[in-house]
């Protein structure tokens, strides 16, 4: 039998629901918007979800919701060849230097 994925948690024992809410930060809202806009270009919800589900369990638990989303969207775009790892690395260095 195939073991269930880390994300597949329905019915498993867990603790009390902490009724936390936070107002989403602007960068989180932009991640959401990028996902929606790229959805319009054919990058599907299922595709992004597959990349979220492929995260190692430790990363899945450690990352916040929109951190998982940006990783998954980036993975989807890399896999589709819309961007390359080289371009992304260069851009990240450039943005970081700019501060």
């Amino acid at each position: 039998m195939i073991e269930r994925g880390h994300h597949d948690m329905g019915g498993l024992p867990a603790g009390k629901v902490k009724r936390a809410e936070h107002d989403y930060a602007e960068w989180e809202r932009r991640v959401d918007a990028l996902a929606v806009l790229m959805g319009g270009k054919g990058v599907t919800v299922d595709e992004r979800r597959r990349h979220i589900e492929a995260l190692p369990p430790e990363a899945y638990d450690k990352l916040s919701y929109y951190e998982r989303w940006i990783v998954a969207l980036t993975q989807a775009l890399l896999q589709r060849g819309i961007i390359t790892t080289g371009e992304l690395a260069r851009k990240m260095t450039q943005v970081e230097r700019r501060g």
Binding site: E26, V31, D32, M38, K41, K91, M92, V95, E96
Partner: peptide, 25 residues
């Protein structure tokens, strides 16, 4: 950093515009 970078790359490639991102937000 990843969000900023990805957004800028997509803008450079003409796949999205900053205006579209702002409007979607």
């Amino acid at each position: 950093l990843m969000e900023v970078s990805l957004r800028e790359l997509l803008v450079e490639k003409g796949l999205v515009t900053e205006q579209q991102v702002a409007a979607t937000v």
